[in-house]
Each structure stands twice: as structure tokens, then as C-alpha cells.
Nucleic acid binder design. Structure first.
Lengths: 208, 208
DNA sequence: CACTAGAGATAGTGCTACTATCCAGTCCGA
DNA sequence: TCGGACTGGATAGTAGCACTATCTCTAGTG
């Protein structure tokens, strides 16, 4: 398969494919001459994966690269791959110098997670996301304490438990890794979209 | 309060405040002279709201403006405000010319929503989000049909029902509207973050 | 053997969210 | 009352991102 066919198959413009290769998201084809190369089904799949992460997951190129690197790291356990993917997906890394206010609510969040009995790494970026959300809620509505999160935590726990129990159609390690990572991203979008639809449904029943 | 004080209070740089005023996100202060103006608590609150939508919700300036316009539209019912906010939040509007493939899965999604008994508007952007997600799942793993979404739909339904039943600390219409819209955005981030933590927890138990 | 197509390198584009500079006017302490 | 810091408003500049266009040289094709 030549590049133009790869492009047609995946509906990605040729210059964009070249760009992805330059950026290291996509391996170059196997050369068949000084200026010809051959692409295969692996390229199609990888390209589709990139587009899903970009368009459904809304990730930036740098994030996509990190996710792909995690997927490709054969020496990592599934748990480690998922952890790396989570780091890559996070909107907020640990701030270099968090404000005292933020540090304060972060402690509340940490204690909350502790109380749930969840064993998660101390540097999980989601902790900071929660802290920022809680700080905003405190400042604007005087919401006190992370207990507001409890119903969401229960729901998240149930969802995650059933997700981790599910298996991909293709049971190889590579297939499993892809399934886990893309599942995180795609079903996140699904859950968000469904929550909005459900909100509209209940809002109609209540206010309209 | 002068602009520099507003800036200090909210930790938003002065040029950025000016920018928000230019862009119509923030009303200008009441002038006390040819080049002096006075800002009040309303400005502080609105500015914080803008930052929450930007930083926790990850919205762009144009999206923030639409959300604020919905909040300010006194003549709309709560249900209408929420609908407008959802439109503003959506990553994907209806494509001008959807591919036949996408249109096909969109029909599956519509039927799925119908079967749930949810009454949501036919042009809800979340329908397209779901269609794109389903198309990606089909193409990469041969997932067939929107029934994959069922567990998520049940969870979303429960979450939304309890959310719509909750009341803000401040019960005025303006307070209620802010609460609903910001709640949509902030608790979405919360739910996402908690799902990731829960995934890590279960992944550790299973794979590590 | 003209001509389309391909690969790779380099440079340019359009958009977004700020950020910097400038200016005339104002405030305020010595 | 005067000088320096500060103000609001206008205009221009910047950095980052995700492509997109162009150029050059080479390969295959009717």
C-alpha cells in the first residue's frame, strides 16, 4: 500500500500523514527504493488510533505521542501502561508551586481517597484535578469538604470495576493494551455525552 | 475596587482582565471619570466563573461567551438555559455533510436513546459524539450496536437524576442557573477524574 | 518519454489566548 | 504643586498548535 492509498483508506490527508510520521506518531513505511515506501495494515490501524485519540478523545499531538509510547513499551505491565496513559491524558500535572489554598484542598482530596480505600499512586494527576474542582466549588458556593464527591465516586467505582473485567475481542497483549487505553478515552467521551443527555431528559421532566 | 485590586483578588493578570472585557465576557466597570472605573463583587464572581469554565472545564473563549450569554438570558427557562449550555459545551456540532458511515451509526444511537425512553431534542450534539465513538469502536474492534453503552447510560441516568434534584445554596434564579451550568462542567471533570482513579485502583488489584 | 505520483525537507498559514506597548489622564505623598 | 506610579482603553505583537503548501528529486506507467 502506498501513502495515497493509506490516506484514502483512513480519510486522512497525505500531508497530515507525513506530519504524523515527522512527529513520530506513525512509523515510516518500509522503503522499496530511494523515494518509495510500502505501508501495511499496521499503519492503517495506528492511523485510525491516532484519529480516535485526537477526535473522540480531544488529545493534543504531544499527548497522543505519550499514549502511543506507553502502548508500545513492551516491557511495561498492563497496570503501568494504564498509569502512563493516565498521566498523558491528564489536563493538569502537579503545579510547580501550588497556591496554599490549593494545597489545602488537595489534602482534603487525599484524605477522601484514603477513606474510600482506593490504592492509587500519590502523584496521580487526577488528584489535582479534583482539588481544583473542589476549590472552585468552595469559592463559589461555599461547598465544604470532598464528601460532595461521594456519589460520583461510587458510580466511578462501579463503572471502572466492570470495565477492567471486560476483555477485548483480540486477546493478545498488544490488543489488550490498546483496548484498555482507547477504552479509557472513548468510554470517557461516551459517559460524558450520556450524562448530558440524561441531564436534558431529567431537566425536561422537571422544568419544562 | 479598581482593576488592579480585581486582578489581585482573582489572581488574573490585568491584561487578561482587559482582554476578557474586550471579548465581552466581563462587563466593564462603572466609570468614575474619563479613565477610571469601579468594579464590584459581581465582577469578582463573574471573573471566577470564567476561570472555572476555562481551567476546570477546559472551554475556549467562544464557548465561555455562549455559556455566559445563556446564563444572562433572563427570558429563558431553566431547561432552555441548560440546553444552550450543552450546545456551547459540545465538542462536535452536527457535521455539515456527515459520511454515510457516520449517518448509519447515528441512526443506531438514535434508536438506542429512543429505547431508553429518554426525551431529548433531536439536534442534541451529544448524539453525534456518541455516533463518532461508536463508529470508532466498530472500526477498531468490531463492536456491534449501541448496546455497549447500556451500563454507562444507566449510571448517567442515576447521576443526572440526583444532580437535577439538588439545589444550590443560593436559591435565586440567577444562583440556580449558575449552579446548574457550572455543576455540569465541574462535576463532569470530577466524574472523569474519579473514574480514572477508580480504574487505577482496580487495575492495581488485577494486574499488579 | 511525457506525465502523474511519491517521498522527504522546509517553510508558511490560520487560529487562539493571551501579553506588551503606548497614550492621555488621574491620584497621591512629599 | 509636582513627579512618579497608576488607570482604562486602544493597538499591536507573541507563542503554541495542528496542520498545509511548496519544492526537489525520483519512480513507475501508458
Amino acid at each position: 500500500m502506498r501513502m495515497s492509498e493509506l490516506s484514502r483508506e483512513t480519510e486522512v490527508p497525505v500531508p497530515t500523514v507525513k506530519y504524523y510520521i515527522r512527529e513520530g506518531l506513525l512509523p515510516s513505511g518500509s522503503p522499496t527504493g530511494p523515494n518509495q515506501a510500502e505501508y501495511g495494515q499496521d499503519h492503517v490501524r495506528r492511523l485510525r488510533l491516532i484519529r480516535v485519540l485526537r477526535e473522540v478523545g480531544g488529545l493534543g499531538i504531544a499527548q497522543v505521542r505519550k499514549v502511543l509510547e506507553a502502548i508500545d513499551a513492551e516491557e511495561l505491565s498492563l497496570h503501568e501502561v494504564l498509569g502512563r496513559a493516565h498521566h498523558a491524558l491528564a489536563p493538569s500535572e502537579e503545579p510547580s508551586e501550588p497556591s496554599p489554598e490549593l494545597a489545602r484542598v488537595k489534602e482534603k482530596v487525599d484524605r477522601f481517597i484514603e477513606d474510600l480505600g482506593w490504592r492509587v499512586s500519590a502523584d496521580a494527576p487526577a488528584r489535582w484535578t479534583l482539588a481544583e474542582a473542589l476549590l472552585a466549588l468552595e469559592r463559589m458556593w461555599g461547598v465544604e469538604g470532598a464528601e460532595t464527591f461521594l456519589p460520583y465516586a461510587r458510580v466511578a467505582d462501579r463503572v471502572a470495576a466492570s470495565e477492567l473485567a471486560s476483555r477485548p475481542p483480540n486477546g493478545s497483549r498488544a490488543g489488550m493494551v490498546e483496548w484498555m487505553v482507547v477504552g479509557t478515552v472513548v468510554y470517557e467521551a461516551v459517559l460524558t455525552a450520556l450524562r448530558r443527555l440524561a441531564q436534558e431528559h431529567h431537566s425536561a421532566r422537571r422544568f419544562a
